[in-house]
Amino acid sequence: MLIIGEKLSIIAKRVREAMMKFDKGPIQEIATRQWKEGSGMIDANIGPAEDGGEKMMEWMVTTIQEVVPLPVCLDTTNAKAIEAGLKVHNNEWGRPLINSTSNDPERFPIMEIAAKYNSQLIALTVGKGGLPADAEERAGIAAEMMARAMEYGMPVEDLYLDPLVLQMATTQDQALKVIKSVRMFQELNDPPMKTVVGLSNISNGMPKELRPIMNKYFLSLLLYEGLTAAIADAHEVAETVKTFDVIMGRTLYAHSYLQM
């Protein structure tokens, strides 16, 4: 499974301060650490970035790829900022991923950009009308977005369907619906559609010490359903992914398998 390192987010105080000052040090340190911990892609979450978004995303992409040979996940609602990031992205280390479009018409331009720049794209299965009620509604939205991708000339293989993980602490019944969605999404195409989740949202609002437990168990269930990628803390989930690969027979067991 692909781990998209979640730590470079404007929500984190240290990252936000570094971004405001265009201070490369902390950004590159965090990016490098996530790479070493097993991330295959680095998320760059600059928030809505209404002012100076283009410059910010451009700076984030080049700053990260100066030290880490990985593609970047461009995480913002600002389409212009995404475009600016794609222009400087170094595809030698893999194709970029945009986070994200949805079934809300305001987010359609982001899909156009993905098609134009041959980028991969996360498609959040929500529309304008609020949160989806169940897996069936998510799959319906997914099908609409897949049709739109084809209209825009974008291969559906480049779409990562995101069922939108909700908080256990507030909407417990949604957890199973998300798991079911991951299974249903794959059936929408042959080869199966790619899937992605923002994992840590499941434990948002929970006591700090419980969050890793919830994240890891939830991830193992999603993995069993065939999840392709997760935006997550690589340090936290690496043992889950490695153990899962051993259980599934994808990695040969050895007592030190966690250290490899």
């Binding site: 067991y253 050895a254 007592h255 030190s256």
Partner: peptide, 14 residues
């Protein structure tokens, strides 16, 4: 034993 063989290789490279 294949698993012990892998383990020994890991220990040696460590």
């Amino acid at each position: 034993d294949i698993n012990l063989s892998k383990q020994l290789n890991i220990l040696i490279t460590q």
